[in-house]
Computed example of a mutant assay.
Amino acid sequence: MSMTKKEQRLRRSRQTRVRIALQRVARLAVHRSNLHIYAAIVSDDGTQVLASASTAEKEVREALGGKGGNVAAATAVGKRIAEKAKAAGIEKVAFDRSGFAFHGRVKALAEAAREAGLQF
């Protein structure tokens, strides 16, 4: 039985989630769609979202001129999530790429967040 693309991605993400849960740190979860990229920092027990940023936010959309599906947009979201995390007093996170390849937009988001001072 063949799996859909989404099922394959979710299967890949499962082991990562287990490993991150053992680390007892907040996780920076990333979701990528064709139009947008989203980042959320989830508490170490997985119960609440401590900070989030995405290209669907009004300010971000205006700054990017509506183009949320490219590397420049991902970089902006990475920067923004790091700033919001700092404001919430979070320094260390585990990067959860949710089964997406660490490449292109996902990589750009991660590197921007690192540069803006998030540790992972």
Rank of each mutant, 00 (worst) to 15 (best):
S2V: 14
K5D: 15
K6F: 07
K6H: 05
Q8G: 11
Q8N: 14
Q8D: 06
R9N: 07
L10D: 07
R11N: 08
R11C: 01
Q15A: 12
Q15K: 13
R17M: 10
V18S: 08
R19N: 15
I20D: 05
I20R: 06
Q23H: 06
R24C: 10
V25N: 01
R27L: 11
L28F: 12
L28C: 06
V30A: 05
V30T: 07
N34F: 11
N34M: 14
L35F: 05
Y38R: 03
A39Y: 04
I41T: 03
I41D: 01
V42G: 09
V42S: 11
S43E: 10
G46R: 08
T47L: 15
A51S: 13
S52L: 10
S52Q: 13
A53F: 03
S54N: 05
A56K: 12
A56Q: 08
E57S: 10
R61Y: 02
E62G: 09
E62H: 11
A63E: 13
G69Y: 09
N70C: 09
A74Q: 10
V77W: 02
G78T: 06
K79V: 00
K79H: 11
I81W: 10
I81F: 11
A82Q: 02
E83R: 00
K84R: 15
G89C: 08
V93A: 04
F95T: 05
D96E: 08
R97G: 05
A101W: 06
F102G: 03
H103Y: 14
G104S: 08
R105K: 13
V106D: 00
K107V: 04
K107H: 13
A108Y: 13
A110P: 01
A112W: 10
A113Y: 07
E115P: 01
G117W: 11
G117D: 05
L118W: 06
Q119P: 00
Q119R: 15
F120E: 04
F120Q: 01
F120D: 09
